[in-house]
Design a protein around this nucleic acid. Structure first.
Lengths: 190, 190
DNA sequence: AGCAAGAAAGTCAGTATTGACTTTTCGATG
DNA sequence: CATCGAAAAGTCAATACTGACTTTCTTGCT
């Protein structure tokens, strides 16, 4: 749903082809959500069918299609953009990266391995954080960046705390509460 | 991808029918990702086709199908669980809730409206936070909760900061930098 | 001039996800 | 004891998304 917003938003600053949209998004890297090529073309077509975009020109291109379609916002598309923007900002949706699910089930691993995995994750996050943290001068892009960075920092803090608590577990209770239920075998050798 | 993990994980503690899986997930509310009914059945079927699950029994049921299928983990499924768990925990993926995208494009609204929208969002987050924050005694569920709560707190902090900066903008530069590009009209009346 | 490597600009068949509909059974109520 | 509404337990057609493949240019080298 925010993918539509992204496409419409980019088109606010002028007409673009599908290729352009994809290029811009991937160039901005981690700041925007990832948007696969196929998806971009699909979205453009659908938004056009809904009357939010219209084909503006068929610029000469180098690819297999001799002309590439360039899309522009219609008035209705502009309206759609506004509506979506309000909707997206208002509606908080929990970020489901899967780690919450993973965390719940880490109990099926030994604390030692759990800690190890979390450390690996920490590394990942730190690297990503650096990628995102390159400066922009645009205020609003800064705020968007700040958002991502804050989330990452929160995650780093969380990892820290989780590791500590697992370390306590590791020391105090060996073997720890292992809800072993794997059919036949111990969970450890799954 | 973490949906598979969720399903497999729940089955670790014993066989379940599709209905059960869905019930458990929705009962836990915000802690897990949302998993629609249709999706559950699809996942179960696919995982079974891949040899991770097998049908264990056909308990009597009240629904339209007189017997409902009950699935259990196979050894291979247990293996799959372990692999997925490691993969999910290791791989950090940025949480794309759409707000980053929204934030970038908030520049197309007046600072005043932007602030207003963010305040509404704050409200939402606060409410959700309360929902998530009900206690569990399970250590690992606590850690999962802690994760979500941390993210929400990070978001609240971010909203705070963003609002401040937009307020400055509001005061110092009226009318602010408005990249008006909506075809024909001013962006404000989109 | 000829050729290989790579980038431009997609297409499309397969896979995943959604949401609206269905059918049966149960419990409560008049 | 007829029936009305809700919950159980799904199904399925439509929609969205992905990734692997394709074709045409351009550039750089020999």
């Amino acid at each position: 749903m925010h993918k539509e917003l992204l496409v419409l938003g980019l088109l606010l600053s002028g007409p673009l082809s599908g290729y352009d949209v994809h290029r811009i998004v991937t160039a901005h890297g981690a700041l925007y959500s990832d948007l696969k090529k196929g998806n971009v073309y699909y979205l453009l077509e659908r938004l056009a069918a809904e009357g939010g975009l219209h084909v503006v020109a068929e610029a000469g291109a180098r690819g297999p299609r001799r002309e590439r379609l360039v899309y522009a916002l219609t008035d209705h598309g502009c309206q759609m953009f506004g509506d979506l923007l309000r909707e997206v900002v208002r509606g908080y949706t929990v970020a489901h990266t899967g780690i919450e699910v993973g965390m719940v089930f880490l109990s099926y691993l030994s604390p030692t391995e759990a800690i190890h995995l979390l450390e690996e994750r920490r590394q990942m996050v730190v690297e990503r954080r650096q990628l995102v943290e390159r400066a922009t001068e645009q205020l609003h892009e800064q705020l968007a960046q700040d958002h991502l960075v804050s989330l990452m920092d929160a995650e780093l803090g969380w990892i820290e705390r989780s590791v500590s608590r697992l370390q306590e577990l590791e020391k105090t209770s060996v073997p720890p509460q292992q809800p072993t239920r794997c059919p036949g075998t111990s969970v450890e050798d799954c």
